[in-house]
């Protein structure tokens, strides 16, 4: 296989709660090549952030990984000690969090918060070297070097977000996760930030995992996407394929509910019903109760599993009809 950077196999994770287990990640597999950008899309609450946190091994205390493996550059992350993980984090894999507005400590200067990470991973760098590098990164994301000396509350939301991107790049990671990085911003700034991320990714040849509930944004940003529903990937493939030939009913519903990015007016269709609660175990297709095609095309009782229907294009078996 051509240099697989990140390889996730059969990953399952649940949260232990008083009401029972919340199955946030169910048997998920995907891989990201170096330089590739991978999109993860799905309704809010389907487990996208849970996947992102698990990749960094930063999941909350009440989470349990029941199965699976995460290989980054050939190195297994699950079960790694906290000390070994510290070396991997930011150095190989960094993240722009959802709601990154609050990612900055209010009482420490921006520059110091970036240098702090660089000190950890490049202990031999001089302060001057670090400062120069930060200035360079700031320039790349359209910020002035003087921002380093500012405190977070002195910056606007957009500036903070750009600085977060600079922070994520500061230790030359091989892959960046961006978890809905534009949610809290207004539309114009959202666009700028997206362009910034895309530009930086191309420029540095990084891999990117872009997470969003908005499939239109994903289309702009990624080479390959996975559509997630209720903790599982229901369809995955090259972005172009998915857009031109969506197979799973949920993917189609998502696409139909989004104004087309190519400008042709599509009729907005909203999905009926709610996503299922992740506490209840579901056998068979979890989308079935909301699926417009459940009576006709699908086989909702089939146990969920992905099958390859075209090169690199995978889809949940339920959508393949009765066999």
């Amino acid at each position: 296989m051509p240099d697989l950077l990140l390889e996730v196999k059969n990953l399952s994770m649940h949260y232990d709660t008083l009401d029972g287990n919340v199955d946030a990640v169910k048997d998920i597999s995907f891989s990201v090549k170096s330089g590739e950008s991978f999109g993860l899309v799905g309704e809010s609450g389907c487990g996208k952030t849970s996947v992102a946190m698990t990749l960094l091994q930063l999941q909350p205390d009440n989470s349990v990984i029941t199965e699976g493996s995460i290989k980054l550059d050939g190195k297994e992350l699950i079960g790694l000690s906290e000390n070994d993980l510290r070396k991997v984090r930011w150095d190989s894999i960094s993240i722009v969090f959802q709601g990154a507005m609050n990612a900055w400590n209010p009482v420490i200067k921006i520059g110091e918060q970036i240098r702090e990470a660089m000190r950890e991973h490049y202990p031999e760098n001089s302060k001057q070297e670090n400062i120069e590098k930060i200035d360079e990164l700031f320039k790349m994301v359209g910020l002035d070097g003087s921002i380093s000396e500012r405190f977070p509350h002195e910056l606007s939301g957009g500036m903070k977000q750009r600085a977060v991107i600079a922070l994520a790049l500061s230790c030359d990671p091989k892959i960046i996760i961006a978890d809905e990085p534009t949610t809290a911003l207004d539309v114009v700034i959202q666009d700028q930030i997206l362009n910034e991320i895309k530009k930086v990714q191309d420029l540095l040849g990084l891999s990117l995992i872009y997470i969003s509930h908005d499939i239109a944004v994903i289309a702009e940003m990624t080479d390959k996407i996975a559509v997630m529903y209720a903790g599982s990937i229901v369809e995955m493939g090259p972005t172009k394929d998915i857009f031109e030939n969506p197979v799973h009913s949920y993917t189609r519903a998502l696409l139909d509910s989004t104004p087309s990015i190519r400008g042709e007016k599509r009729k907005l269709k909203s999905l009926d019903g709610e996503p299922p609660s992740l506490i209840n175990k579901i056998d068979g297709c979890s989308f079935a109760p909301r699926c417009p095609d459940r009576e006709t095309k699908c086989n909702p009782t089939e146990h969920m599993r992905l099958v390859e229907i075209a090169p690199d294009h995978f889809v949940d078996i339920c959508s393949q009809g009765k066999q």
């Binding site: 960094l56 930063l58 906290e82 993980l85 510290r86 070396k87 991997v88 984090r89 930011w90 150095d91 960094s94 993240i95 969090f97 709601g99 990154a100 609050n102 990612a103 900055w104 400590n105 209010p106 009482v107 420490i108 702090e116 990470a117 950890e120 991973h121 922070l167």
Partner: peptide, 29 residues
């Protein structure tokens, strides 16, 4: 519980540094 603690952890900082520099420093106020 604040987000920047998560950022600090994601950055690979040591436990002691997260505790003293990020959590305790802000809790001091």
């Amino acid at each position: 519980k604040d987000d920047y603690i998560l950022t600090a952890r994601a950055k690979g900082l040591s436990q002691k540094r997260i505790r003293d520099r990020h959590a305790a420093r802000t809790a001091l106020l």
